[in-house]
Amino acid sequence: MIDLLLPVEKVLTSYSLVTAFAVVGVTMWISYTLSEHVTKGRIHGSAIAILIGLILAYIGGIFTGGKQGIADVPMLSGMGLMGGAMLRDLAIVATAFGVRMTELREGGLMGVLSLFTGIFVSFAVGGAVAYAFGYRDAVSITTIGGGAATYIVGPVTGAGLGASSDVVALSVAAGLVKAILVMTLTPFLAKSIGLDNPRAAMIFGGLMGTNSGVMAGLAATDPKLVPYGAMTATFYTGLGCLLGPSVVFFIVKLIIPA
C-alpha cells in the first residue's frame, strides 16, 4: 500500500504548484456550491473559499508548527508559491486592466486622506491598547501601534527603534489579527458602510491598509472593487514604515515622556 502511495506523493510534492492549482480549484468548487445551495447566494462563494483557506491555514499551523499555514505541509508547499507575493502581485496588477482613469482620479483625494488617517488612527488605537496593558515606553507603544497598522509596519518600526523581540512578536500578532478580521468581516459589513463603488473601495483600501486583508476582503465582497482598494492599500505599508519610526514615534514621545 505504502509502495503504491509513494510515487503519488512524489508527484504531488515535486509538482507542488500544479497541486496547488488543483486543490484551490476544488476548494473554489466546493465553496461556490455551498454558496449557491446552502446559503442561497447570501454568502459569496469567494468569501466561503477564503474562510476555508484560513481554516486550512490554521490546521496547517497546528500540525507543522510553521508560519506559512497549510503551505508548510510539503505536498501543499505550492500554496505558498501560488498565494505568495510574486503571483499575487501579478494577478492584482492584472485586475487593473479595464479600470477607468477617471474613477481613480475621482477617488484619489479621499484615498490619500484615508491613507494618512488610517495610518495615524491605527498607531493611536494600537498604542492606546499597549498603554492600557501597562507599556510605558515610547518604543514599545509605537511598535505595537505599528502592528495595528500592518504586520509589516510593526516589526519594521520595532527594528528601527530597537524594540525587544517579544514586543515585535506581539506587533506581528496584532497585524495578523487585523488582516484576518478584515478578510472575514468585510463581505458582511460592506453594505452597512456603503462599500459598493470604486470611490468607497479606495477609501477602504487607504483606511485598512493591510494588503492581504484588503485584497481578500474586497475579493469576497465584489471582485470588481479589488483594483481600486489595492491602489491605495499598496501605499499604506510603505508610508507606515516611513512614518512609524519618525513622525509617530516623535508624537508618542511628546505624549509619554520617557
Binding site: 496547488a20 473554489m28 477564503i50 483557506g53 508560519k67 506587533s171 496584532a174
Partner: peptide, 25 residues
C-alpha cells in the same frame, strides 16, 4: 485573482494570530 487570494489565505499564519494573547488581539 480570487483563487490566488484563496491560496494566500491558506498560507497565512493564522495560528500566530490566535496565539498572540489578549493584548495583540
Amino acid at each position: 485573482y480570487v483563487p490566488v487570494v484563496v491560496a494566500m489565505s491558506a498560507s497565512q499564519n493564522v495560528r500566530g494570530a490566535l496565539s498572540g494573547g489578549v493584548m495583540a488581539t
